[in-house]
């Protein structure tokens, strides 16, 4: 044992600093190499947005139609509900009352969504 009283966290701090340095040293070296040695030849086309070789049209920051949320909700009602219904039906006889009620609440929430969608006229095709 050494006679110098060591702080109990000294080892951890040392390892932390070493670990961070180990992570950042290659990044720093790569940055330094790119900064001082890499042959840089920028150009308008080279710096342009990559669109698989095509010229990009317009800005990427555009608004998407919010009306697609309706498909997300209907997908949740039919698809996700079906996924949970199958194990529910298989394990139904062995379920305790609490689990059964929880599942019924889940079903109720989604059925509520279905009624809402039905009233909104989403489910009618014409």
């Amino acid at each position: 044992m050494s006679s110098i009283p060591e702080h109990p966290w000294l080892m951890v701090i040392g390892l932390l600093v070493g670990g961070v340095a180990f992570g950042f040293a290659p990044l720093a070296l790569a940055w330094l190499w790119a900064r001082f040695f890499s042959p840089q030849k920028p150009g308008a086309e080279k710096n342009a947005t990559y669109e698989c070789g095509l010229e990009s049209k317009g800005d990427a920051w555009i608004q998407f139609g919010a009306s697609y949320y309706i498909y997300a909700i209907v997908f949740l009602v039919f698809d996700v509900e079906a996924i949970f219904l199958l194990p529910f039906a298989v394990a139904f006889t062995g379920l305790p009352a609490g689990a059964c009620i929880a599942m019924l609440v889940f079903l109720l929430l989604l059925v509520e969504g279905l009624i809402w969608a039905c009233q909104k006229g989403v489910l009618t095709w014409a």
Partner: peptide
């Protein structure tokens, strides 16, 4: 062809 040239342009040297 324009797409090929554009892709080539977008590659870094060498």
């Amino acid at each position: 062809a324009p797409q090929v040239v554009r892709l080539y342009n977008q590659m870094p040297e060498p």
